[in-house]
């Protein structure tokens, strides 16, 4: 039931074209667990890098005043809360603006409302908080008939395959 369109498309001649056709055929469908997990892993890496940057900056500033440079001797609560804050801010900004974070951009997925519209700032921040404090909600995607995570069910959001389709189409034409 998932790819009736693929058979109608012109026969692909190269591997890359075959991929494009396959990707096209699934645009707008609900993304599955692996794609979303991949996107989230990339996002976690981004957040860790950003946090590392913050800690480094803080260490440099601290060094200027105390002549004592240490990067990783911060209390755990500080590191953890900084991680949560950065993660929430990062996810919220991505989802509220385009529905995509960096990880979702790479994985080619987008968060929208069940109505198909963009999720607003409030939904985005609640979703971000829910994900940061209970990432296991994503696992429900495996079981859900609509590939929905617990967060999706609570906030009526969906994650779709979305490759910025116009670009893809232009490439197929070319």
């Amino acid at each position: 039931m998932e790819t009736p369109a693929a058979s109608v498309s012109p026969l692909p001649t190269t591997k890359a074209e075959a991929r494009l056709v396959r990707g096209q055929s699934l645009q707008g469908q609900r993304a599955g667990f692996i794609s979303r997990l991949g996107a989230d892993i990339i996002d976690v890496i981004v957040v860790v890098l950003v946090e590392f940057g913050f800690l480094f900056l803080a260490a440099v500033i601290r060094y200027l005043f105390t002549r004592d440079f240490h990067l990783f001797h911060n209390p755990v609560w500080l590191t953890a809360s900084l991680f949560w804050i950065i993660a929430v801010a990062y996810l919220t900004s991505g989802w509220a603006s385009t529905g995509k974070t960096l990880g979702k951009q790479v994985a080619g997925v987008r968060v929208v409302r069940t109505t198909g519209k963009r999720i607003g700032f409030r939904t985005a921040i609640v979703r971000a908080i829910l994900y940061v404090f209970f990432p296991w909600g994503l696992v429900w995607t495996l079981v859900s008939r609509k590939n929905a995570s617990l967060q999706d069910l609570l906030l009526k959001t969906v994650v779709l395959y979305d490759w910025s389709y116009r670009e893809v189409a232009a490439k197929v034409d070319a």
Binding site: V8, Q27, G116, K117, L160
Partner: peptide, 23 residues
């Protein structure tokens, strides 16, 4: 796994996809 109609048409109904894409 079908997505919301508006999102799907928005995604598949781009200006350059007509004719070629049966979506």
């Amino acid at each position: 796994l079908a997505g919301p109609a508006t999102a799907v048409s928005e995604l598949t109904g781009g200006p350059t996809t007509n004719g070629q894409d049966p979506h």
